[in-house]
């Protein structure tokens, strides 16, 4: 035989899944949310997303090529996803240099210091976001008004988010039903007619993306469903206990970054647990911490912190929560 045969250990076939395809799938699933944000925040959303994605990719390229001197693997698309998700967690009137700073921090500190994709314990996009939130609290919490100021970027008129209004009201001792009149109704919240970060506004678009991810088998349903369910149950108990002080569970689910966090940030493959039981514990943790921060904490919103805190617990969860082995329950004598 002229040509040499190839020999390798079994299996000899592989599924058509690849890291690139996973990342592509995530990017595709973000399209509905991106369209909504373009409609609601317009110019600012476009600028921020573009800057964030480009900076993330360039940062990864530079670090891999010149600092780590390893193979450049920006083609796997993970930097694009990080860039998109970071942008989706920022207000649309953030100065461009802050976006750059956040993106460099997300990739540089959040991801590459640990050795790159697969080794980072914390979700890089959230690391970038929280870094910006702590460094520039004012800019990070001034939210452009939805739809009205969509042709402006830095000079957009700003207002508070529904959660911000709620927090303010509770602090001032106002009665909740009065406050609720200032807030768009649930249907508008569901569609995305509210102030907030780029990607978090429309629950509808995010849920559409979630179905796509499920269909493509990129995610399992456990983390998003259990995160949202925990928030629902926890806020539900609080609401039943004192409807004057606490908002409805539906309000909590539809506002803030909960949907975005539950579907895209908490489910980051690298930083979430490996087993189904582990995922449920992790998701419940995120839900509880989120509600605790929202209701009892100083910040109006706490999804980012909740996810980062639970990220830190993931190695521990992986260590102690093992999948149920085949033939385990039968005692072997």
């Amino acid at each position: 035989m002229s040509r040499l045969l190839t020999v390798s250990p079994s299996p000899h076939i592989a599924s058509d899944q690849s890291v690139e395809k996973l990342m592509q799938g995530v990017v595709i699933s973000l399209i509905p949310a991106f369209l909504v944000t373009l409609y609601v925040f317009g110019l600012g959303a476009l600028i921020i997303t573009t800057i964030s994605v480009i900076t993330c990719v360039l940062a990864e390229l530079t670090i891999q090529k010149y600092m780590m001197k390893t193979e450049v693997r920006i083609h796997d698309g993970s930097a694009i996803v990080t860039g998109l998700l970071l942008a989706f967690n920022l207000p649309s009137n953030l100065p461009w240099w802050m976006v750059v700073l956040g993106a460099v921090f997300a990739i540089g500190i959040g991801k590459m210091t640990y050795g790159g994709l697969g080794n980072n314990p914390f979700n890089p996009a959230l690391v970038g976001r929280v870094f910006l939130l702590i460094s520039f609290p004012v800019q990070m919490t001034s939210w452009p008004l939805p739809v009205e100021s969509r042709m402006q970027y830095l000079d957009a008129a700003t207002g508070a988010t529904p959660l911000g209004i709620l927090k303010e009201a509770v602090r001032n001792g106002e009665s909740l039903p009065d406050v609720m009149n200032q807030i768009p109704d649930h249907m508008q919240l569901f569609l995305g007619q509210m102030g907030g970060s780029l990607g978090e506004i429309s629950a509808l678009a995010l849920v559409l993306g979630f179905f796509w991810l499920l269909y493509k088998r990129i995610l399992t349903w456990h983390i998003p469903v259990f995160t949202v369910a925990t928030v629902f149950v926890f806020t539900g108990i609080l609401w039943l206990a004192n409807p004057d002080k606490n908002a409805t569970p539906l309000f909590h689910i539809l506002t803030g970054g909960l949907m975005l966090g539950a579907i895209y940030m908490a489910t980051d493959l690298v930083t979430s647990p490996m087993t189904k039981t582990g995922m449920i514990i992790y998701a419940a943790g995120i839900g509880i911490i989120t509600v605790v921060i929202r209701v009892f904490g100083a910040y109006p919103e706490g999804v980012s912190f909740a996810i980062l805190i639970m990220n830190a617990f993931v190695p521990l969860i992986n260590k102690y929560i093992k999948p149920k082995r085949f033939g385990e329950e039968v005692k072997h004598g």
Partner: peptide, 13 residues
């Protein structure tokens, strides 16, 4: 016949 290039684990589970 040829395997694809090995990439780092992304812990997708």
């Amino acid at each position: 016949s040829t395997r694809l290039k090995t990439q780092p684990c992304i812990r997708c589970a």
